[in-house]
Design a protein around this nucleic acid. Structure first.
Lengths: 355, 355
DNA sequence: GGAAACTTAAATAACGTTACCCATCCAGAT
DNA sequence: ATCTGGATGGGTAACGTTATTTAAGTTTCC
């Protein structure tokens, strides 16, 4: 007889009857609650061991916690997000919580659906990289669940924020290029259908900082921005557009490494070389940037630290903290071979870190 | 007064009283169950609309389904996994199910913990890329939850398998290199602490196929394998080792694109060039491989199709199918500029697809 | 020696949903 | 008029866990 086939899961009452104690007693032991004698504790623990019992998060959820935290990322193609997840996972390792990732997407609708899905599953808290939602929407979520928002700069009384100091990072890049002697420095930025105030979004901050620093150095007339996307194709398209202009820029600051990789390809396709004809710099310092055949100058923001911080702040909120915290990470510039003085002076590219 | 602050969620009984009907009736409408009049349906639906009610997956879970499916991936740094997730997400888009991702990791213990976490959350089904677990362990999981295993070749009566025909793919690469005239073709493979039978794991299949094809072409003496890891660092280390041998190989088949990227860097570091001094080929055809400054010859396996297939098979299993299905994807070779005849005959690299 | 004060264990009532069963209603057949 | 039967709506008992309350011992102290 082939019944449904799946065997019934061991429950708390199986443990209770096996140990010949009450269900309550078992629950107390699981939760490390007070009022349980050492003898009882041992008895229950061996029963749990023998039966291989693990509590069912769903049932616990009905009474409060699911010991689950939800991480919403727009997508997983950006390796920088992997650093965040690793940092978070490492932090949660010696807690009872488990992190689950859900993919947002390119539209507000999908992003919203993803966050709703987390709330509907009764996660204990939410960490999200949500570039598309309005602040009001984020606060709405935060009123329902403890929330930490990553990579957005706005503060809110209802959620914690963890972000990179993108202004400092962008400034490092642009100043570095200026110090090398570049004047025609172009920038590739990102655009989406966000409802957030522009000033809260990292790509706008990077772009605005680029403009500011250019102006501060008397280069207002040289400002050239291509608006596309922070991915390979976007970087490729943006670079082609910028390099098609006359006079041609001598340096391109791509707002993200993914776009910088596309930029490198575009430069190559146009028969130019890096850094002799064009210097290229990115942002994020993804692993690939360090490979010697790419050797991309980039801004390092410590994703693992951000993930860890987000985890810590979220658990604090779950434990009851109601005041808002903002945590900002200071980036550093990693100079590699893709940037050099303009005009073809080759020279062996060296690697150095500036803070 | 600052109470706990979070507002109570709308429940099914709120909807019921608002619509002045029974809880049962609301439940029926939600589930599209029979025995509900059109009038009732409308009434309830407007009440749901007005209150913004969404069912709580956790509570539904206690009675059966959570409408959640769990995807376990070893990590998210491999962009190929992003394709799988995208395919799966696309497939689930017009179902009631939501996919959540949990990260496995580099050790069996972590991998096991991740899968347990999914089971403990009562997901309705599990899709996993689990290279470390033993087959017995996978079957144990499959007995508890509907399961689809990705990227492993073994069949099982208890779960479905979705995998790339790695033998065909590896054969395409090695034959391509041989046809170009290469004889000293080396391979970089991967090693981990898996408990799976070697023959079930894709990296072993790729390596074994490499050896077989070499032998079949009278190149048994030229077989050279470096054992490291399928990531940038692994590819770099493996390539350095292989290129240090004398005589030096004229072509390297890295078992994965991530490793191939490291290989490209190693070749560059040793002052050699691709494809003049060394041809390099990878596997996975990640987006980066197409960039013109990388232009890596690679084997394309359609991750989106695999993700979609996995989703479809899993839902079938959830609906009750008990017989096992194996779904294999046929790969194709994408020839790019990183492979050319040995001996420095440059020539404009062309792009072509062979099936 | 007995009340007060603890400590320990168990009984019980939720949490939000669904599946099963029963009651009612009305149409059509006798 | 009575009966049968299908359609519709609602009552209720679970699902596995935890928090609160209650009961039963066991000390402690005058």
């Amino acid at each position: 007889m082939v019944t449904s086939g799946r065997r019934r899961r061991v429950t708390i009452s199986d443990v209770a009857s096996h140990a010949q104690v009450s269900v309550t007693a078992v629950s107390k032991v699981i939760r490390n609650a007070t009022g349980v004698s050492p003898a009882m504790r041992d008895r229950v623990k061996t029963a749990i061991e023998e039966l291989g019992y693990r509590p069912q998060a769903v049932a616990r959820g009905m009474r409060g916690r699911t010991f689950t935290i939800g991480l919403m990322l727009p997508h997983i193609r950006n390796p920088f997000f992997a650093d965040i997840l690793d940092g978070l996972t490492a932090y949660l390792e010696n807690t009872d919580y488990q992190a689950f990732m859900i993919q947002g997407g390119a539209t507000r609708k999908v992003e919203r659906r993803a966050v709703d899905a987390l709330v509907d599953r009764q996660v204990d808290g939410i960490i999200m990289v949500a570039p598309l939602a309005s602040k009001a929407r984020l606060e709405e979520v935060a009123k329902e669940k403890p929330t930490v928002v990553l990579a957005r700069h706005e503060g809110s009384a209802f959620y914690d924020s963890v972000y990179d100091d993108d202004e400092a990072g962008a400034e490092l890049v642009v100043k570095h290029l200026i110090e090398l002697g570049h004047r025609r420095i172009a920038h590739i930025t990102h655009q989406d259908d966000s409802q957030a105030p522009p000033a809260d979004l990292l790509h706008n901050i990077r772009a605005a900082t680029y403009e500011r620093v250019m102006r501060e150095h008397g280069l207002a007339d040289e400002i050239a921005i291509a608006t596309s996307f922070y991915n390979e194709q976007g970087g490729y398209d943006g670079a082609r557009e910028l390099l098609g202009r006359s006079p041609r820029p001598t340096a391109i600051f791509a707002g993200a490494d993914q776009a910088a990789l596309g930029t490198l390809a575009a430069v190559h396709d146009m028969g130019l070389s890096v850094p002799q004809d064009v210097s290229v710099a990115g942002y994020d310092n993804i692993h690939l940037a360090a490979l010697s055949n790419i050797t991309l100058t980039s801004v390092d923001q410590d994703g693992a630290v951000m993930g860890r911080a987000a985890g810590k702040l979220l658990l604090e909120r779950i434990e009851g903290r109601m005041t808002a915290v903002r945590f900002s990470v200071t980036p550093s510039l990693v100079v590699r071979g893709s940037t050099a003085p303009p005009g073809g002076s080759a020279g062996a590219p060296s690697t150095a870190v500036t803070r």
